[in-house]
């Protein structure tokens, strides 16, 4: 083999970079986070829509609410069940889910998303 030193070195560097996930995590398991529901959320039993829908679509729903409220002035959201809710992150969502750190942030941190909701919106003080 010609230029063996250089070629093998390059190959090893490439494979070490490629194996980043394997040596970075060092095999430590990291299951999806458990979300904590406040008492109020537990009592309500159901969010404004089905849980499966909320898990996947809450961001899009909030985005639509933002547009509807701030741009078009519609403040009432009618759910699939026909119930009416005030379209508000602070007053509706975080009325039940007042534990941002143990509810919102757990998943957001886990999958590394940083929504800009709270750039403007305030959230309740946590009483722990």
């Amino acid at each position: 083999m010609y230029d063996k030193g250089k070629i093998v070195t390059g190959l090893v560097i490439f494979f070490v970079i490629l194996a980043f996930p394997f040596w970075y995590n060092r095999g430590a398991s990291s299951p999806a986070p458990e979300l904590e529901l406040t008492d109020k959320a537990k009592q309500a039993e159901k969010c404004i829509e089905e849980t499966a829908f909320m898990t996947k679509e809450h961001m899009q729903l909030l985005n639509q609410w933002r547009d509807a409220v701030a741009r078009d002035g519609y403040r009432i959201y009618v759910s699939e069940d026909g119930d009416e809710y005030v379209a508000s992150l602070t007053d509706t969502c975080m009325d039940c889910h007042s534990n941002k750190a143990d509810f919102c942030d757990r998943c957001h941190d886990y999958v590394s998303v940083s929504p800009y909701c709270w750039d403007c919106h305030t959230y309740p003080e946590e009483n722990n």
């Binding site: 995590n25 299951p31 996947k56 886990y110 999958v111």
Partner: peptide, 24 residues
């Protein structure tokens, strides 16, 4: 959309050699 947290649970299983198909 898919449940991203469940997706990460699967991919992290692959990265840490504890492969499993997560609930979700």
């Amino acid at each position: 959309k898919v449940d991203v947290a469940a997706v990460k649970e699967l991919t992290m299983g692959l990265a840490t050699f504890r492969p499993a198909i997560p609930e979700g």
